[in-house]
C-alpha cells in the first residue's frame, strides 16, 4: 500500500480547474518527482495535500487515513511536512527558533510548567536543543544558529526550511522547487541533503524544474499539465515520452 495516495483529486479556483482528477502514489522510502510547466498545478497539489486548500473532489489518503478532511496542523501531526516555493521562514526570529518551530508538535510543555519553569520544561529544552543542532548539522547551518533569519542569504534560508521540516519527524516530506534560485554548488549540496533525508526513512515528493536534480534523485516521476497527469514512470522513461517532450521538455528545450 502506498504511503500517500491521491485518488481523482480535484481543485478548482473559480472557473479554473487547477488540479484535474489527479491520481498519485508515493510509496514508503521513495523519492517521487512532480514536474510540469509553470502554472500546471504542482504547488496547488501540495497545498491540497497539506490542507491549506480544501479539495473540490477526490481523496487524499495518507498512511491508510483520509486526510483531505483534516486541517493543516492535523495533517502535520499525521506526519507530513513541507517547504514552500516562496520561502516561508520567520524572518525576525533566529535560525535556531525557526527549527524549533518544527518541533512544535513534539514539545509537550504546557502553560503551567512554562510559567513555573519546572524540571520538565528544562529537560525538554535540553532534549530539543540536541535535535535542533543535529538538524542544523544536516543542512550545514550550525554556525548560523544564532543569526536572525532574514539576514541569511536566500540559499541558506531555503535549506533552513528543510531543517525545520525534518525535525517534525515526518514520514513524508514535500519539497516545492527546493533548487530554484540556488547556484550549482548549492544544488549539489542540496541533492546530498535530500539523499541524507531519505536515508533517515523519510519519503519525499518533490517539485522541481531542474532536470538534473529530478533525474539524479527520483525513483519515479509524475508529469502534469493543466492539472492532469500526462505521464508517469522513471525519469528515463518519461524523458522519452512524446507527450511529455511536447508539453514540457519540448517547450523548455534544455534537456
Amino acid at each position: 500500500m502506498a504511503l500517500l495516495e491521491t485518488i481523482g483529486l480535484v481543485k478548482r479556483f473559480g472557473g479554473l480547474t487547477a488540479v484535474d482528477h489527479l491520481d498519485l502514489q508515493v510509496n514508503e522510502g521513495e523519492i517521487c518527482g512532480l514536474i510540469g510547466p509553470n502554472g500546471s498545478g504542482k504547488t496547488t497539489v501540495l497545498n491540497v495535500i497539506t490542507g491549506i486548500y480544501k479539495n473540490d473532489g477526490g481523496k487524499v489518503i495518507f498512511n491508510g487515513k483520509e486526510i483531505h478532511i483534516l486541517t493543516p496542523h492535523e495533517i502535520c501531526e499525521h506526519g507530513i511536512a513541507r517547504t514552500f516555493q516562496n520561502i516561508r521562514v520567520l524572518g525576525s526570529q533566529t535560525v535556531y527558533d525557526n527549527v524549533r518551530l518544527g518541533l512544535h508538535i513534539q514539545t509537550k510543555s504546557d502553560l503551567f510548567n512554562i510559567i513555573f519553569n519546572t524540571k520538565q520544561v528544562r529537560e525538554e529544552n535540553e532534549r530539543i536543543r540536541k535535535i535542533i543542532e543535529e538538524a542544523l548539522d544536516i543542512v550545514g547551518l550550525r554556525k548560523e544558529k544564532n543569526e536572525i533569519t532574514k539576514n541569511l542569504p536566500y540559499g541558506k534560508q531555503k535549506v533552513l526550511e528543510i531543517a525545520r521540516a525534518i525535525v517534525a519527524k515526518p514520514k513524508l516530506l514535500l519539497l516545492d522547487e527546493p533548487a530554484a534560485g540556488l547556484n550549482t554548488a548549492e544544488t549539489e549540496n542540496l541533492m546530498e541533503i535530500v539523499r541524507n533525508i531519505r536515508k533517515r526513512g523519510i519519503s519525499i515528493l518533490l517539485i522541481e524544474h531542474e532536470m538534473a536534480f529530478v533525474g539524479g534523485l527520483t525513483d519515479k516521476v509524475y508529469v502534469i499539465n493543466y492539472g492532469k497527469k500526462i505521464a508517469e514512470g522513471t525519469f528515463n522513461e518519461i524523458k522519452k515520452n512524446p507527450s511529455v517532450i511536447q508539453v514540457y521538455l519540448g517547450t523548455k528545450g534544455d534537456e
Binding site: T71, L90, H104, I105
Partner: peptide, 16 residues
C-alpha cells in the same frame, strides 16, 4: 510569534 509572522507556516508546522 510564528502566528504573528506567518500564519500559514505556523499552521503547516503543526501549530493549531
Amino acid at each position: 510569534k510564528a502566528i504573528k509572522e506567518d500564519e500559514v507556516a505556523a499552521e503547516v508546522m503543526g501549530v493549531d
